[in-house]
Amino acid sequence: MVCVIELDDVRVRLGQREVLCGVTAALPERRVGVIGANGSGKSTLARLLNGLVLPTSGTVTVLGDDTRRHAARIRRRVGFLFTDPDAQIVMPTVAEDVAFSLRRRKLPREEVERRVADILERYGLAGHADHPAHQLSGGQKQLLALCSVLVLEPEILVMDEPTTLLDLRHSRLVADVLRELPQQVVVVSHDLALLADFDRLLVLDEGRIVADTTPRAAIDHYRKLMS
């Protein structure tokens, strides 16, 4: 089987702390979840997957490329959604922010406008296209950030707690989106319901993978760990 994401004895040291201590995993599944306590290294693991964080030792291979050598190319192929949508929205209005993602593609203007309109329509933001982004609710901002990532059609989508700021309805919307996305997704979350039907779940604890199994078994393990 072709492994889309491969981590080989990855260690990450940030400042004085060893944040990840020897993580090895091959992740070919379409939907992979990561859970674990606060500070266990989940965000660091997610950031490794598109080269935002580089391993201190060991290698991270994504779509056949080493993140240490091909960070720019990997970032074009791996979309990343952060927890805080405010930091991801860079343009003043909704449609402009989505269009901004496409800038470097050098597409004709009509093509850009069509793609932007399509994606805003799909995620229920069409009515807000020309609204200032700061007037959206937190959930709508997260959807906008998602649109701005998905419009680039990444081959892998990595999300760090995408539903933390969302209400139940918007969380479900994101869950539905995840279910239908054709690409591979890796989701870090404390929202166990979101990950319940994933193909595989990793449990991190103090920088190590302590369980790597089906969601049901992983969640049980995580509950015991937390009690």
């Binding site: 935002l52 720019a72 970032r75 952060f82 930091a87 991801q88 860079v90 470097r104 990532v149 680039l152």
Partner: peptide, 13 residues
């Protein structure tokens, strides 16, 4: 966070 988001969107290449 903004800087990180910009590079995740490929804007530093």
């Amino acid at each position: 966070a903004l800087g990180e988001a910009l590079s995740a969107r490929g804007l530093d290449d």
